[in-house]
Structure formats: C-alpha cells, structure tokens
Nucleic acid binder design. Structure first.
Lengths: 151, 151
DNA sequence: TTAAACAGTACCATTCCAGTCCTGATTGAG
DNA sequence: CTCAATCAGGACTGGAATGGTACTGTTTAA
C-alpha cells in the first residue's frame, strides 16, 4: 500500500519528542518511555538516526541523544532516507543496472520523475511541521521536465 | 526505500504496452511477450487490473485484454491502488484503530496529510504520460491544511 | 466439440522486517 | 581508580509479505 516502514514511523515519533524538548538531551530509555515504544526498539532507531547525522549522541553516564539541527531543518525526506535508504519508487531509480529490463523499459524514466516529485513532497515537510497542531502549509511541487535537462 | 511493489511496476509496463496499441485487444501471452515478462506473472497482474476495472477482459477463444478507459484517464494513483490497495504511508491512515498508539500519537494527522499529497502526485501522472517520450508536464500539489476542514 | 483464453484459488520459496539480545567502548561521578 | 550508566555494533530469530508458479474451472469462438 505504498507505506513507510514501521521503524521510519517510530523515527518520526522519537524525533518529534526530541523536538518538543528544544535542544535538551535525553537517554534512549527516556525517549522510548515518552514515545511509548520499547526501549530496545527505540535504541535501534536512534542509532540509525545518529549514523545518518540527524541526531547527535553522547556516550557514557549522563549521555543521550538530541537533534543535530533545528526541527525546521530536518525534513521527512531526510528521515525516510536515513531509515530506508535513498528514496526511489522502483529498483532502477536507486540501483542502476539491477533490473535486467533496462534498455527496453519505457517507463523507467517516468518512474524516476515521479520519485523525484515524491521526494520533493517529503522534503517540503519538516519536523517542525510534524509537531502537534501543525502549521498550515502549502507545498508546491513540480515534476521535472526531463531527467537530464534539469535547470 | 519507499518503493512500489514489483508487480505494480509490471502493471505499468503492461498498461503502457496496451496503451500503445490504442484500443486493440491482446491476450495475456502476447502482452507478456511484448513486455518481456513471464506469462503467468503477466496473467496474474492483468487479472488484478481487471478486477479493479482498469482493463476489460474478454474470455474464450480470441479473448484478451484492453484498456477500460483512455490512457489519459488512468492515473498512477489508480494503478498503485489497484495493485496494492489504498495509498497510505502509515497503517493508521488506511486502517483506523489498528495501531494501538492512536490517541497519544502526535504525528498521525501529519502523515495523513503527507499521504494525501503523495496520492495527489500519483494522480497527476496518467498512463499517457508514462509512454516513452513523456509529455513535459508540471504537477502542482498541495498538502491539505487540515484533515477535516477540506474545502 | 474442441481449443483458446480468462478466472479463481492455492501453494511454496525466498526475502525482508521487526524486535530482541549480547558484548564492547566511552564517559561522568563518587 | 572504580563503577555504573549509556551508546555502538553486530547477531539472531520469528513472522509476515512478496513473487512466482501451478492447477482447476468457466467462457467463447470456430
């Protein structure tokens, strides 16, 4: 049904919990409790987010996680890419040469256009927008005219 | 990586093959050969598309499939929905009450907004656009302001 | 009557995902 | 200096979903 992975959803929940505390730092266990997730699961997600550079970690006693940037500077495209890898609706958008149908496939270029449009949609929504009581926003998006001739 | 199912991709390939022959009718085996897919796989996809009403089938000798509407009247949102069910980035967008975190989840409404925007992006691209040598198009999309207060 | 072709269902093998656990490295506090 | 808290990094497992395939039945034209 074209959905994000559960862990990606958890990531947004954890990130909004971190955004709500405005720069403070919390341990994985604290964030898990506040987000009502199991601690090991939350820890796994936070590690992934740290590797992607979306959150900063401090080890040792009194350590924890906090956002690496302002909530308005973290987009949903960042989160999805951090958890699931590069965004692409089809295999061939991400891994060129993995499909076997390339060369005689007429829809490849068009799926690439659509993927770019959807990534733009995700990039237009920031973590700040995901906080409860969302700010009304309009998100203009256009699909590129061609693959190569991008202005 | 936020991708459509392989069968959905096959569906677009088969549908473009049908669009290219402009109203004529072909058997599943013919379409499979033209699309370089295995016949049983193509047949499975075509059956699903027929159930969804995107293609019309005729049984018996000389039967086959053809598009149920003009290529410009079939959108990628139709195709994805036909193959994968209702479009929604998270469980709770599609199956309300299946998550257990509903009620205390602050991101639910926002994922719904994003899902609507992405569905709009898919609805803006038609089968006619997916044919080789795509028509240049711009696809304006906006995320709804709220869930309920939709004009 | 027969053969072509779709319809429906069931099945299996593989892959992927979610969740958990364990061990090691780092750091602050006593 | 020692200890406890905390993150880092794999490894592992159960279950679900995906994708292919096969089989049987039904419809239709010749």
């Amino acid at each position: 049904m074209l959905r994000i992975a559960k862990l990606t959803d958890y990531a947004t929940v954890l990130l909004t919990a971190m955004a709500a505390e405005d720069g403070a730092q919390s341990s994985a266990a604290e964030l898990a409790a506040r987000s009502r997730l199991e601690t090991p699961t939350a820890a796994k997600v936070l590690k992934t987010l740290a590797n992607a550079g979306l959150v900063e970690s401090r080890r040792g006693a009194g350590g924890g996680y906090r956002l690496a940037r302002a909530p308005s500077a973290i987009t949903m495209a960042d989160v999805v890419a951090a958890m699931e890898g590069p965004i692409g609706m089809t295999e061939c958008v991400v891994d060129e040469g993995a499909c076997g149908h390339e060369g005689h496939c007429g829809v490849q270029a068009n799926w690439r256009r659509i993927s770019i449009a959807i990534e733009a949609a995700l990039r237009a929504v920031t973590l700040a927008d995901m906080l409860p009581k969302p700010v009304p926003r309009r998100i203009p998006i256009r699909v590129l005219r061609t693959d190569a001739a991008t202005p």
